[in-house]
Design a protein around this nucleic acid. Structure first.
Lengths: 143, 143
DNA sequence: ATTCTTTTTGAGACGGGATATCAATTTCAA
DNA sequence: TTGAAATTGATATCCCGTCTCAAAAAGAAT
């Protein structure tokens, strides 16, 4: 029994609703993906190459996009690359992004999260996830 | 005299500090860029092609990145493309997005903005702008 | 279990956006 | 005016992500 039983269930439910099939690859990729907080398709590809050298890169991309549709992942575009965030991961973190050099600093702030909840409930929403990116200049680029 | 004198001054100051030169192209591109709220390099390229058919696409990219370093622009990655936002153009709001029906509610929250400033300065950043999106289910979709 | 339809996969081709290259040109301080 | 340093433009190149399509796998029906 996988330790990602809950997420696997979510995936299966999504597959069922859309006439999609549960495959060995999808199971494998989900298992590996859930061990990360966030990862790129390329990184995941190399990680999995050890377990299954024939897993195609295109399949990784397709599957990660599937996870996004199922609500298990969230795509984030950083410069040229795309990061896929593990939505179920507890310590959700946000990003400070330097518009000068592209440097990225991760942070967490409970107060902000709490205020987000307030805003959401005031509007009748139940938050599943969020994205917060602060754009500006880091100390080096400002000078 | 250009009506973008203030921004032109910011650019010149940045150029001076970095041993860069003030060129006809940079002036032309800044003028065109500031007329927009946000634009892609490609769009700007086509706009300017009328005024100066020999302006190269590479120059547009280089110059927009320069503007980012000067704090005049801000790059945002949307899917495959990069949008360059005109930082001097204010009027910011955040979004609550329903993952069920796609409904979008705009909101503003000063407390959150204040906390963002705190986080940024703690990391040596000067915020130009930000993006905050809350994803969840609206009251109707939850049932 | 076997058959049959539908979906998925893998390998590589492909496409678009952005950057790198480099000789010719321009800027600007001396 | 001159010359060193930066910039430009045209294009080659890179890289990420998607598309293509024949072969394989899933899973429903029998």
């Amino acid at each position: 029994m996988s330790k990602h039983a809950k997420e696997m269930e979510i995936l299966k439910e999504h597959l069922g609703k859309h006439q999609l099939k549960f495959t060995r690859q999808r199971e494998l990729i989900l298992d590996a993906f859930l061990k990360q907080e966030h990862i790129t398709a390329e990184e995941l590809y190399h990680q999995l190459a050890r377990k299954d050298p024939h897993l195609g890169l295109a399949t990784i991309y397709r599957t990660l996009n599937l996870f996004c549709e199922a609500g298990l992942a969230q795509a984030r575009h950083f410069g040229t690359q795309t990061q896929y965030d593990n939505v179920s991961h507890k310590g959700h973190h946000d990003h400070l992004i330097c518009t000068g050099c592209g440097k990225i600093v991760e942070f967490e702030n409970c107060d902000i999260e709490r205020l987000q909840e307030e805003v959401a409930s005031r509007n009748g929403f139940t938050i599943q996830t969020h994205r917060l990116e602060l754009y500006g200049l880091c100390s080096r680029c400002r000078h």
